[in-house]
């Protein structure tokens, strides 16, 4: 039983770390501010959920579990409000979004432009 719990929380904690690093790499790699917000919201939702889930499995049924759930609830309620406020302020201030067409349409134009030279 102990072993199963340990393995499960290993999986959850490492999964959370993976999604966190994914979001962080995404903020470095994506081209404009608006798409970076999407990468940032990955780290706020699933990463937080998995890490706190892994910690809950280690804590068992105690007051610590209740506090962990409260931390998660705070994060999940405040993170959309924060990112919405950010995006709204940026849009209001006229930060230009980089808009790209759908991939199949773009691959056609890329072929067209590469055949030119």
């Amino acid at each position: 039983m102990e072993l199963i719990l340990d393995v499960l929380s290993w999986i959850l904690l490492m999964g959370g770390a993976f999604f966190g690093i994914t979001g962080a790499i995404g903020t470095l790699r994506f081209p404009d501010f608006y798409s970076r917000v999407h990468a940032g919201s990955v780290t706020d939702t699933l990463c937080a959920l998995m890490i706190i889930g892994g910690l809950i499995l280690q804590a068992g049924f105690t007051l610590v579990t209740v506090k962990l759930i409260m931390v998660l609830a705070f994060l999940w309620y405040t993170s959309p409000a924060a990112s919405h406020a950010l995006v709204r302020a940026a849009h209001h201030m006229g930060v230009p979004p980089v808009l790209l067409p759908k991939p199949d349409a773009r691959s056609k134009t890329r072929e067209g432009s590469s055949s030119k030279p």
């Binding site: 501010f33 970076r36 780290t43 990463c47 937080a48 890490i51 993170s79």
Partner: peptide, 26 residues
């Protein structure tokens, strides 16, 4: 490059600090 990118990064840093504090307590 814009100030909003910086605020986004600082927000991310803050939420990760919360998770770090929880994990560090354990």
């Amino acid at each position: 490059p814009s100030v909003y990118d910086r605020i986004l990064a600082v927000n991310m840093f803050g939420t990760k600090t919360v998770l770090f504090l929880a994990a560090f307590g354990f």
